[in-house]
Amino acid sequence: MKPIRVVLAGAGNCASSFSQFVAQAQADPAATPPGLMCRSVGGYLLSDVRVVAAFDVDATKVGRSLSDAFATPVVSATAFVPLGADGDSPVLPAPVLDGLAGPLGGVVQPADAAQDARPEDVTKALIELEADVLVIMLPTGASRAIRMFADAALAAGIAVVNATPEELARDEALCRRFADAGVVILGDDLRSHLGATTLHTALLELLLSRGLVPSSTYQLNVGGNTDFLNLADPTRSASKFTSKANALRAAGMDDASIAAGPTGFIRHLADTKVCFLNITATSVLGSEVKIDVKLTVEDSPNAAGVIANAVRAARLATDRALSGAVNDACALLFKSPPRGLPEGEARAAFLGFVS
């Protein structure tokens, strides 16, 4: 298959883990590494992906290679494997806009080139890189910067995977623009491979399948990477709470019974995420069932497993001349797709799409 040329908007933790996952696949294309849900997506293997560049604003990353950028102190994702040839790809400057608003401004110094960068520079670079897919992995709440990247990709005619909670694929007006231009957009907000929301919705659907009635639930998440630092600011985390509620609503909960989202930054956890999950449900004769779960994962590899499917699905949708938001590809991979589905239906739709 022709290589899928991927550009990353954001050279942080998730970008590091995804690039490593691609490098692992490139080193042994015949293998099926743990966590790869679909070895083939419409004939595309993960080894067909090439990470050709990333955009960032951090002075310690801009102008350096991906390998060097991922080795900076602000990146806490574990380095499991070397990046190989893609590690030499450049980190290009992006306009700062609102990307460093909130707590991130205290730990990231913007590069001079990023201060001077313009949206049209992003579009120009995407065209010159002959990119196929842009993956947006900017900080939650950076609405202007996220939408700038979506507009730049649309102008360049390049498919978008929106890994953030910002509503792009759910924005009907934006999706009409993508559809009219013949460009694919997938989103919104990655549903981690086996993360808090994936486990939460699976448990809710199990209860419902046995005839139980969930009455209340909460999901409390803490971590120590820059994502959790950013989310410690309530003005930045609001869309994350909305996205998680969308996912739980699709699984059968009503809004009044949901409390789910990031609840704390604990620096020494680094890229570890800890989830405390509770569900209360009514069973036979009004008896009560309570589930309490603690889930501990490394956050960024958990995201990489989903991005591995999303970039190939975006390329496959483009090959099939689809455009706008493609819900058969979105419902399984994202917390807040255009139309939410229960996990079983979403998985069947995705597998049908990629077969």
Rank of each mutant, 00 (worst) to 15 (best):
F70Q: 00
A71I: 14
F80K: 11
F18Y: 08
P73Q: 12
S67W: 05
C38Y: 12
G42R: 14
A31N: 12
T60L: 13
A69K: 01
L45S: 15
T72H: 08
G35T: 13
L46G: 01
P90V: 10
S47I: 11
D88L: 01
S17L: 03
G12P: 05
A77T: 14
P93N: 00
G10P: 05
A101L: 09
S40F: 14
A71K: 13
T72N: 01
V96R: 01
A101M: 04
S47A: 15
L83E: 02
A25Y: 06
F80D: 06
V74E: 09
G87N: 14
A59N: 12
P93R: 00
V52Y: 03
G35R: 11
F21T: 13
L97P: 05
L66I: 10
L104R: 02
A11M: 04
G10Q: 01
A15I: 01
V22G: 09
A23C: 09
S47W: 06
A11V: 09
A30T: 13
L92D: 01
T32G: 04
P82G: 02
L100V: 06
R64H: 12
C14F: 04
D98T: 09
G102T: 05
D58K: 11
D88S: 10
T60A: 15
G84S: 10
G43N: 11
V62K: 00
S65H: 11
F55I: 05
P29R: 15
S65G: 10
A23T: 03
L97V: 05
F55P: 00
P95Y: 10
G43D: 08
Q24W: 03
L83Y: 06
R50H: 05
L92E: 03
